[in-house]
Design a protein around this nucleic acid. Structure first.
Lengths: 339, 339
DNA sequence: TTTTTTATTGACAACGTTGACAGTCTGGTG
DNA sequence: CACCAGACTGTCAACGTTGTCAATAAAAAA
């Protein structure tokens, strides 16, 4: 044991050729005679030689990318990650993951450090980091390749290739669904002024109400976070202060699941006494009882797309990939009933 | 834009010292005068110089580790990952994640390649990969540092530092809890002969029954996977073929959640008509209704420990960290009632 | 035949860092 | 005063690749 890893020169010596020839074989370059090629390949096989990535990286651009996110416990993240990974594996890239606290000042430093030290060649940014223009600019200045995922009906600017997800349209669609079923007092759970997705969904909710000729009732709009616990707490608060509400729009599935839980605790039957909808179509939205009516957000697909764009950006820098928008579809299950 | 990243030599030139002195300052070596130190630091600041990791890596051991897993969608994985990440960040390591299909022959090649090409210096293995002695040996031969997480009351061998989790004792404890509540016909859902954790929990289940003087009823042991869907399906199968069963031991929380769902579908009240327990204490085990009685498996903590052991192994190779065992605790919630 | 092209190979210098080692001061000690 | 240790600094060779360019041999064109 403690055998040193074979290097390109070891292979060269055994094959009786120059180490440059070995390099050529390894990189599948032209102008190598079949004779040399087979001889070298045999030795590579024999020694189980594998080129040292680190050394290689000194001459070439990094073959790895970073996934930067903020909310480590959500399903959102793991689905995204899986999507990115499928793409990475296909293209032979490695993935470095980098959770971070977007509130902290460290973020900028950490990110520019990953780029600045040549660890990764590109970065996939998710909200809320992806919404900071200055951060994106800083990264770009360091010659990082950046792809960002944001909420919106179109990209906010032309800084970098962007994937935008139209929360507003979907928020409107699912609210309209509730209105169609006869609901008139629909609560919105999970409003958060600094959270673009929340805001988009909220705007869609307002638009649907307005189009239908109803006003937004302020006491039915509850602020909170995108978590189960927050969902429980918001629902309790709401049900205490209002008894006319017949439907709940949870800003994501976790909130909706929390609402479901709180309703159960209050002995309210869903959907008979109270209709509930979520947003995201995370796996557990079909595992609750009743299954949640929600909006399908194809996180893995979105992320895979982001990864594909980033990799193309790194490999063929001359051709900038286009932005890409995602429209979201309703998923009807059993948590809504007509009134 | 397109400014080249400053190198150690750029700093040296501007500071009017040799680049070796800069290196010394960067690495906090002794024997550097305060004068040089402050001068260099000023220039570093000014240029925003960051040492190139790749180049550094050519002279030193890699500062990153790989997390290798097989079941990308489970909570288990994301919790583990978060645990590893906390540890990594603290120690300044980067994490490369590597999902893989343990059934495929590629695994060995992929792993030895990560090591062989110097991408990472160490690997954290989870089941079922961690159970392959030959894989561990292969990795070790490549001078990889390996820490593995396995199921068992003690490490299976002395190949590498190991974290072992005593599924059997916990499986026994939770079965005893059910027996204490008067249950006599307890089904075991999620038996899988190739799955060590499943097997351990199953052995605990059997032991509890035997100690209490009951036999294991074969028709109450259902084979399946650790997923929600499998849980639903196994429960349906079970309830069709037996009507004496009063309690269900789901081999993990997802199975238990599936069982809950299937019971609901059959109009069975939990826990009144049927008691259900899970295993793992994943977040959603307290988000179901009723909350699941389960076994707390501190995945993040386990993984953080693994990472800490691995890092120590990489940094101070002379001192091998000790194995480390985890005992699991019952979490009593509302999915069990006395009979 | 001579020249040009085409295929094939090798020497050598990068890449940006750290480690080994050899200097050069300064001040104290014999 | 000579010597030495200690504090500091610099030179140079690695590390394992890839890129550049020159050298060679064989084949084709003149």
């Amino acid at each position: 044991m403690a055998v040193k890893k074979p290097t390109i020169k070891d292979v060269a010596r055994l094959a009786g050729v120059s180490f440059k020839s070995v390099s050529r074989v390894v990189n599948n370059e032209a102008w190598v005679s079949d004779e040399v090629r087979t001889k070298v390949q045999a030795v590579i096989e024999q020694l189980n030689y594998q080129p040292n990535r680190t050394a290689r990286l000194m001459r070439t651009a990094p073959f790895s990318l970073a996934f930067v996110y903020d909310n480590p416990n959500s399903h959102y993240v793991i689905e995204m990650q899986n999507g990115i990974l499928t793409e990475c594996r296909e293209k032979g890239f490695e993935l470095v993951i980098h959770p971070t606290d977007s509130a902290s000042d460290q973020v900028r430093h950490e990110l520019t450090s990953m780029i600045g030290t040549n660890l990764v060649g590109g970065v996939i940014l998710t909200p809320p980091l992806s919404e900071s223009t200055t951060l994106v600019q800083q990264l770009l200045e360091q010659q990082a390749k950046v792809v960002r995922i944001v909420s919106g009906a179109e990209p906010p600017d032309e800084l970098c290739p962007t994937i935008y997800v139209d929360d507003e349209a979907a928020g409107q669609a699912i609210t309209e669904h509730l209105l169609d079923q006869g609901h008139r007092h629909i609560a919105f759970l999970g409003y958060h002024k600094d959270h673009k997705s929340s805001l988009g969904r909220y705007r869609g909710y307002c638009a649907a109400l307005h189009h239908a000729g109803f006003a937004v009732e302020d006491e039915l709009v509850i602020s909170g976070h995108f978590t189960f616990d927050s969902g429980v707490q918001m629902t309790e608060q709401l049900l205490q202060q209002s008894n006319k509400v017949t439907a709940l729009f949870g800003c994501n599935d976790e909130i909706a699941a929390g609402a479901l839980y709180a309703a159960r605790k209050r002995q309210l039957a869903v959907p008979e006494d109270l209709s509930i909808v979520g947003f995201e179509n995370s796996p557990f939205s079909r595992q609750t009882w009743p299954g949640l009516t929600t909006v399908h957000q194809p996180n893995a697909e979105i992320a895979a797309r982001a990864a594909a764009m980033l990799i193309s950006l790194m490999l063929e820098p001359e051709q900038t990939p286009k932005h890409c928008g995602f429209k979201l579809q309703l998923v009807l299950r059993d948590s809504v009933s007509p009134i």
